[in-house]
Design a protein around this nucleic acid. Structure first.
Lengths: 167, 167
DNA sequence: CTAAACTTTCAATAATTATTGAAAGTTTAG
DNA sequence: CTAAACTTTCAATAATTATTGAAAGTTTAG
């Protein structure tokens, strides 16, 4: 496999993966492109590489900046804006985990808490609803907490020792 | 909040969440409905509760069975098929994590491995591609392994002690 | 201040994905 | 074996989501 093929494969795989972390294709592809680029890229360059329109590029870059994983880079003497993404995978994972938690997981936990707190009228179906949503609530909270803790740590020693412990 | 409202809120929240674990709305809603039901439900009952067509119900039930989180229950003396979902959240999480890993994460890890193994032609851009995809590969593998281990364990003692350790 | 160089917005449209429902298929009671 | 009771399939359609591109907006060099 040559450079160009590998690059395209990476971008398209990572792009289609976007949905896993609640991000659309173009957004994920722009991030991928920046992630393996050796230098900041301008909007023109991104449009051309990915064959997407100016509007699309602009909107998705903004979203990536909202997620905190892409930032503007000003090149002195240049009028254009250039963009870079966080290059450290650990940091990237931290940002993504934090945003997902905030945008998606936390609100769901809230709903589960509300639903599981309705008053018990004694009927079997109400009891079941309360029991099951409470169980999900606890699971979701634990999972969310673990994810954040793990990803927030100075990874190396703790991850390694956890993995050993869990094997 | 009364039973009916709580139920609807739960089903619609959990349903819209489906996309987080790569499942469509109807599929997630059917699972939710079964999850808080006190008894197995027939296709008719599911259709009626969720206001979805017979075909839709049939297809999504099949998918849920493929995921291994819903199963047929035969009620003696009845011609119809009845359905139940795994009621234990721990088991549910295990199944979901396992399927996601198999369907989505493992294939991506494979691509990352391939891409990061292209021959180094000495150029900066090739070096960067290799370095970055290798880093992602390692991260993805570690995350996948941890998720599976955690979710596979007899949760209680290990989860609790891990959480303490991580706090 | 002006105009060129750029970016953003957003209505129209294209692409994708989910849903319907009727026809075909399957199972079982009798 | 037959027909009723059910389930599945799948082409057509509806709903949702992403994309385009031109017009409007913004910034800065001169």
């Amino acid at each position: 496999m040559e450079y160009q093929e590998a690059k395209e494969k990476f971008i398209s795989t990572w792009g289609s993966l976007g949905s896993m972390w609640g991000i659309n294709k173009a957004m994920a592809q722009i991030q991928s492109l920046l992630f393996i680029s050796t230098k900041p890229l301008s909007m023109e360059e991104i449009m051309e590489e990915l064959k997407i329109s100016r509007g699309n590029t602009s909107m998705n870059l903004r979203q990536l900046m909202d997620w905190g994983i892409v930032s503007k880079e000003l090149v002195p003497g240049e009028r254009k804006e250039y963009f870079t993404t966080e290059k450290d995978v650990q940091e990237l994972a931290r940002h993504i985990a934090k945003e997902r938690s905030r945008r998606e997981i936390k609100p769901v936990i809230k709903v589960l808490k509300d639903v599981s707190s309705i008053k018990d009228d004694g009927t079997a179906k109400t009891k079941e609803l309360i029991k099951q949503t409470k169980a999900l609530h606890d699971l979701a909270e634990t999972a969310d907490a673990m994810m954040n803790k793990i990803v927030t740590q100075e990874q190396n020693w703790i991850t390694k020792s956890l993995l050993k412990l869990l094997k």
